[in-house]
Design a protein around this nucleic acid. Structure first.
Lengths: 147, 147
DNA sequence: GACGTATCTTGAACGTTTCCAGCTTGCGTG
DNA sequence: CACGCAAGCTGGAAACGTTCAAGATACGTC
């Protein structure tokens, strides 16, 4: 916590043999702020820290970070891709059907919920992704108010 | 089974107060053939039964059918939307990371696997969607052959 | 400090999906 | 059995998120 965010990010990148560049540090900082951000939101936030970063660079950086395990890509049906800082735990997500809001849900089963290779038709399963669908508190209220 | 497929589809549509049109019947027939089809595949198959059907009609029909519970829309990350006939039972899917193939997986936990509204941050959860990621048998062999 | 390569920039294109206006069709009424 | 309304279809076009290609730049290493 005594280290500036930049140095933390640089250490993470170096630990994986990745080059430390300004766009990457900025993206890591933005992701560290929390939330589930769209590429466009990340690009906008990054541009408040650096003068100009191309959209292409943001996509490339996010791809590299998720490949390195420093970010996690999530993509609920009907939404553009979103990215979040990854704690390495396999938590899951609740998505609001009305407004698309996303929240984290810790896995109640431990490490691998519902992961059951049996009956997978010969597939070699390595990950189980769980997405919950429902209504966020705000949209529940909005719907109740409509009645 | 003694009824022609068309009449079955017509009955399904009428039971929900939906109009019975040729594009809808054709889409229902195609979906009844099984599998997890992309919109483009469905459109192509439909056009072998009817002379000409616009792409928009296929999208509209599929939207109406999934809203009515006659079709289910699935959309694995990084893939275009796909539709399948099985709706109602909540089975899940295995997706091959290499070739994108999709297979069904019956839920081993019964009706609502891992569905745990607790800790959902105030969300009113109504569905739990599970997607397994791995390698299909064919891609396992292909990878083994590369070594 | 100079090199080689990974990374970023610019500009463009791709494929899926949605919008729009207008015509056709299914289906309940008289 | 003909009529009329609204739902549904057609056709063209465009928006969106994303990816590709070629060249310039900056990082890490020697």
């Amino acid at each position: 916590m005594s280290e500036p965010a930049e140095d933390q990010g640089a250490a993470l990148l170096r630990a994986r043999g990745m080059r430390v560049t300004r766009p990457r540090l900025a993206v890591l900082e933005v992701l560290a702020g929390g939330g589930h951000l769209e590429v466009d939101e990340i690009a906008t936030a990054v541009r408040t820290r650096l003068d100009s970063v191309s959209t292409q660079a943001v996509y490339d950086v996010l791809g590299a970070l998720s490949r390195a395990g420093l970010a996690r890509r999530i993509e609920p049906a009907g939404s553009p891709a979103r990215f979040e800082a990854r704690a390495g735990d396999n938590h899951h997500h609740v998505v609001c059907r009305a407004c698309g809001a996303i929240a984290d849900v810790d896995c109640v089963h431990g490490a691998a919920p519902c992961l059951d290779p049996v009956g997978a038709g010969g597939f070699l399963v390595d990950e189980a992704e769980v997405t919950f669908w429902g209504l966020c508190p705000a949209c529940q209220q909005a719907r109740a108010a409509d009645d």
